[in-house]
């Protein structure tokens, strides 16, 4: 196991603990699944061979993929009627879960590349410069994806507001 990578990863986790969990929470909707996703991402990264230049960007990306896998697996289990998911249903009535569903619905209206910038900005608390570095994109592209996404959501909100 690469001890330098392990050390960098632990430092990253320590400094970004809250942002990472919040980011993962607003992807999965469940705190414990968010923790699972972060762990999955760590395990995957620690078993990689070769250097990782942009560890933070790669890490968030891996967490995002892990969240998607977890949500898919959960949906599959739900359709299979696994009793254990009753517990998950019970968690769905708290304020966070309701908020999560509302936000997820809003973000599902826009392309993933735009919603990802918005998630990183609002839930991982990253600046646009950070996001540009993490996603390896020009700063202007990050800002325009943010504005396009926000504008599209604004348009879809307008009829409801009126």
């Amino acid at each position: 196991m690469n001890s330098d990578l392990q050390q960098r990863l632990v430092q990253l986790l320590e400094s970004e603990r809250k942002q990472l969990l919040q980011y993962a929470c607003y992807r999965t909707g469940v705190m414990q699944d968010a923790e699972d996703a972060v762990q999955d991402a760590v395990t995957k990264i620690l078993h990689l061979e070769g250097p990782i230049a942009n560890l933070r960007g790669y890490f968030y990306q891996t967490v995002a993929h892990a969240c998607i896998d977890i949500v898919r697996q959960r949906q599959r289990q739900q359709t299979e009627g696994i009793e254990i998911m009753q517990l998950w249903h019970r968690e769905q009535h708290d304020e966070f879960s309701q908020e999560f569903r509302r936000i997820n619905e809003m973000l599902s209206q826009i392309p993933e590349e735009q919603s990802e910038v918005i998630r990183l900005r609002f839930y991982a608390d990253k600046s646009f410069a950070d996001i540009a570095e993490m996603l390896d994109l020009p700063l202007a592209t990050v800002k325009s994806r943010f504005l396009y996404g926000m504008s599209k959501m604004k348009k879809s909100l307008t009829p409801k507001i009126n």
Binding site: Q22, C25, E95, F96, I118, M150, M153, K154
Partner: peptide, 18 residues
């Protein structure tokens, strides 16, 4: 108008703190 969207998106309940 964009700020209104942002306000809607900003988390008000933190599962991390809970």
């Amino acid at each position: 108008a964009l700020k209104e969207v942002a306000d809607d998106l900003l988390p008000k309940h933190s599962p991390v703190q809970e």
